[in-house]
Write a protein that binds this DNA or RNA. Structure first.
Lengths: 213, 213
DNA sequence: ATTACTAGGTTCCGAGTAA
DNA sequence: TTTACTCGGAACCTAGTAA
């Protein structure tokens, strides 16, 4: 098997399911992958030959299931990417005084709703400002999936959007780093939120060191 | 860019590092990927052309760094695999009487230490035995990362190794499924452990239904 | 409808080799 | 030593079409 064919396999896995079977046809797959029906036919024959899939031609098309061998291949690929991304980077910094603005932002219903759906929790009303090394912070967020919280307007004013990255604070509390689109500080300072009052939970005071991963 | 070239990219990412740079040569990469030096040379030129990598030829070879575009591509691929593997499968079963043996096992220091380092918690001394559908259980653990707790011997007796899979019990309690190497039951019964007394925390009694994910 | 064979065209690879 | 060009051949893809 040409290892490049993993993509074909990935497509099949997504549609068939990891353990399921599926009634489909070479034409449908061809459309999905944007290649010819002939190529799909040929590839599927090759894959079956190599024991990657289980295949049976029916009157209306064919029935497909992944074989263990292809599950193994996908797991390997996944593992490789995990080692690449999974190097649980940590970011450390010093707690400093916030501007009290975070509290106001976090009290807005429209932010709260989005945090709930993106992060799975409603943030405690207040943010933690941490001084960090800018380059380290940039590298850190680069490895994280970026979630985007959209802005909105009320009668009184406009609230901007913000990027947010799910993290684990002090090795135990699930939370997030938030980066407002329009912010006074660059990544020299990051803002942390969590479902709980972090200052209390972690018995923090200004100047203390905090690590997120 | 041919999407199949992701493999080439993955190799580069692993060797260069996600954000780093690296002094290397087309010959070395060719050896690593088991393709010709000429192909590597051609591919790298193509990649640079497409803004996937940053490339500069030196007297001894070349200096390479990934560009943001290729990081993005790898992230996408990773994301696709995550949705494939990450479909938080759940497994449900009925609580049944244990043999009281679990308690004895979990009291062994050498097991405790390993659980602490692999799972991040020391299990409560006692296991929960759950009757489940065997096939569902096999499919369930297949999607989980397998952690292996090694066995050991004391003066009195030998303790076998066990496989263990990190799970979330009843949607809220972090725990693990353990599968002893030598076990009376096959996967018709799974054993659960957690940092806390699950019977109390979940107000369980025999015959109740439990779900893990 | 389907699957899948044949034929012809395109893409891709690597040995040889220049710089 | 390098990188990277040329070019012949292998691998691959798809239109046409049989079953």
């Amino acid at each position: 098997m040409n290892e490049k064919d993993h993509y074909f396999l990935l497509y099949l896995a997504r549609n068939i399911g990891f353990h399921g079977t599926m009634e489909t046809s070479t034409g449908k797959i061809a459309k999905g992958l944007d290649i010819s029906q002939q190529t799909v036919s040929r590839k599927l024959l090759e894959f079956a030959e190599e024991g990657l899939i289980i295949r049976s031609v029916t009157s209306t098309g064919m029935k497909l299931a992944l074989a263990e061998k292809s599950r193994e291949k996908l797991r390997t690929l996944y593992g490789e990417l995990q080692t690449l991304f999974g190097k649980q980077l940590t970011l450390s910094g010093i707690l400093k005084d916030g501007l009290g603005e975070g509290r106001f932002y976090m009290s807005q219903e429209q932010y709260k709703k989005q945090f709930q759906s993106f992060l799975g929790f409603v943030p405690y009303q207040g943010t933690l400002n941490i001084s960090v090394d800018k380059d380290a912070a940039v590298a850190f967020v680069a490895t994280k999936k970026q979630l985007y919280i959209t802005g909105f307007s009320t009668k009184e004013r406009t609230f901007g959007g913000l990027k947010c990255y799910s993290v684990l604070i002090a090795k135990k509390i699930p939370g997030a780093v938030i980066v407002p689109d329009r912010t006074a500080h660059t990544l020299e300072t990051i803002e942390l939120i969590a479902a709980v009052n972090l200052r209390e939970m972690l018995e923090l005071e200004n100047g203390k060191k905090i690590t997120v991963q």
